[in-house]
Amino acid sequence: MERVIYIVHTSPGRTRLRLPWLRSDAKEATSLADGLLQVEGVEEVQVRPYTGSVLCLHDPGQLSLEGLLEEVRRSTGVDVLLRPGEEPPDGDALLRSLTKGSGVARAASLFFKNVNVDVLRATDGHLDLGTLATLTFATAGAVEVAVKGKLPPPPWFSLGWWAFQTFINMERVAIQHTAVPVRHNGNGAAAAPGPDAAGYSE
């Protein structure tokens, strides 16, 4: 989970924050509360780990809002702080998926690459997975036509798939020059290099 500090509400001497990752780390929630209670000016801290809510009651004469936020950042090691209405930057996992593919896609790719190697080994390099799949589908189609005696119309999902593939192949230039709307926090993280995954920063 991306570690972000959200400012939910502030008024003189009363500040409510939301730290979503505390929902999965009750120990850190307790440690944060204990640490904030040691700060001069903090009178009471209420942490609800199951919601990630942190309510701080503090003396504004001794501890300003910015001073409190600095203590929370120092205690948690989190620098990304969002005020009401602000959106968090897209996380490293999203940016990594844009440059290297999603986790499921990478796992599927590894699986089929291993199968392809097995097919090549079994056929002494004469047949790969792509060719085997093509011949299998072509043979299955020919058998179906021979059995039914006519060429059946393709199902709707096949037409949809081929329409999608046609768009991808015919509009490759447009796709490569369409920006991917991702946000980064200016620390050097960005979308995939090149015109096919240009991001924008906020």
Rank of each mutant, 00 (worst) to 15 (best):
E2Y: 02
R3L: 01
I5Y: 02
Y6T: 10
S11K: 15
P12W: 06
P12K: 11
T15A: 14
T15G: 08
R16S: 11
R16W: 01
R18N: 10
R18P: 00
P20S: 12
K27H: 14
E28A: 03
E28P: 03
A29N: 00
T30E: 13
S31G: 11
L32H: 04
A33W: 09
A33V: 03
A33M: 07
G35H: 02
G35C: 02
L36K: 04
L37E: 07
G41S: 09
G41V: 04
V42L: 14
E44Q: 06
V45N: 01
V47A: 06
V47I: 10
P49K: 10
P49I: 06
P49G: 14
S53Q: 10
D59G: 06
P60H: 14
G61V: 03
G61C: 03
Q62H: 09
Q62V: 01
L65M: 08
G67T: 09
E71P: 10
V72M: 03
R74F: 12
G77T: 08
D79G: 04
V80H: 05
L81Q: 12
R83E: 12
P88Q: 03
P89Q: 00
D90C: 00
L94H: 09
L94Y: 05
L95E: 01
L95A: 05
S97R: 07
S97W: 10
S97V: 09
S102L: 03
G103D: 13
A105T: 12
L110G: 07
F112A: 05
K113N: 15
N114D: 13
N114I: 13
V115Q: 05
V117I: 09
V117D: 12
L120D: 13
A122G: 06
G125E: 03
L127R: 01
L127D: 06
L129Y: 11
T131I: 03
A133F: 07
L135C: 08
A140G: 14
A142P: 05
A142I: 00
V143P: 11
E144M: 14
V147W: 11
V147A: 10
P152A: 07
L159Y: 09
G160W: 11
Q165T: 10
T166P: 15
I168K: 13
N169Y: 12
M170F: 15
E171M: 04
A174Q: 12
I175M: 13
Q176P: 13
H177P: 15
H177S: 15
T178W: 04
A179D: 12
V180W: 09
H184P: 09
N185T: 05
G186Q: 02
N187W: 02
G188H: 14
A189V: 00
A190R: 09
A192I: 07
A197T: 02
G199S: 03
G199I: 04
G199E: 01
Y200M: 04
S201D: 07
